[in-house]
């Protein structure tokens, strides 16, 4: 592994994941370069969310999950015994498939991550909260009720709040699991623009069922099928001249 280029932010080598007897990910190899957007596509249940959760060790919470292989962030093994998992998750943030706001106020939802990372300056926290809510296009809708419960938000608003909560902590990598599947077209566009903007300073991994979305925003696309990565290529190439027959069938919608 001496050949590693500096640029690879995340690297997965020969990763296998079992949920009990279910072999959910098989011999996964993938490199994720810094300041890129990489999209995971593939049919339901093929392991996209599972791989995402291996990248910030959320699978530690699943009691019957067993992982073998290597995952590195900036060339450091994240499954190393010495790895501080909370520190890792501050660097590798995550937006979930289902919106999951805390039963706290809108403000506190976004501020929570900043506070636990040790920031005490109230003005600074307020500024970051406002900025984060503006970037996800939620500010105008909630600026008059920042201190109301976040549980009263609509599904799409809650999802944008969760994205704001994640970017507020300024991670280095952001994992997004179908972040726009519950959003209307306008909010989707706001989020897509945000993701493109995030690329300047962060690395983004996004799972999506929306092929146009993958084509619009990602630099690299990776096609999953039954727990395996079938093809990883620059997005333009994967969608126009795929190397694999399965990929071609999937992206042209002739799958089955």
């Amino acid at each position: 592994m001496a050949m590693t280029k500096e640029k690879d932010k995340l690297k997965v080598e020969m990763l296998d994941l079992f949920y009990g007897a279910n072999h959910a990910l098989k011999k996964i190899n993938i490199k994720i370069p810094a300041n890129n957007i990489i999209a995971f596509i593939g049919p339901s249940g093929c392991g996209k969310s599972s791989l995402l959760k291996c990248l910030n060790r959320m699978n530690d919470l699943v009691s019957n999950a067993v992982i073998t292989g290597l995952v590195t962030l900036d060339n450091n093994d994240i499954y190393d015994k010495k790895q501080d998992v909370t520190q890792l998750r501050r660097k590798v943030g995550m937006v979930f498939q289902k919106p999951n706001p805390f039963p706290k106020s809108i403000f506190d939802n976004v501020a929570y991550g900043i506070r636990i990372s040790g920031e005490k300056n109230k003005q600074k926290i307020t500024d970051i909260v406002e900025d984060s809510l503006k970037r996800v296009g939620l500010w105008k809708e909630v600026e008059n009720r920042l201190f109301d419960s976040a549980l009263a938000l609509s599904g799409g608003q809650a999802q944008r709040l969760c994205i704001a909560r994640t970017i507020a902590t300024q991670p280095e990598v952001i994992l997004m699991d179908e972040p726009t599947s519950a959003l209307d077209p306008i909010s989707t566009q706001v989020i897509e623009e945000l993701i493109l903007e995030l690329k300047e300073s962060y690395t983004v991994v996004i799972v999506t069922h929306n092929m146009q979305q993958a084509a619009r925003i990602s630099d690299i696309t990776s096609f999953f099928y039954l727990g395996e990565i079938i093809e990883v290529n620059p997005t333009h190439k994967l969608f126009t001249t795929p190397e694999n027959k399965l990929t071609e069938k999937y992206v042209t919608g002739r799958f089955g």
Binding site: L61, Q87, N100, I116, R165
Partner: peptide, 17 residues
């Protein structure tokens, strides 16, 4: 719901928090 705890862990909250 497990989702809620996942959310907290995912932004780097330690167990006691």
């Amino acid at each position: 719901p497990g989702l809620l705890k996942e959310a907290a862990y995912s932004i780097g909250a330690p167990y006691h928090k």
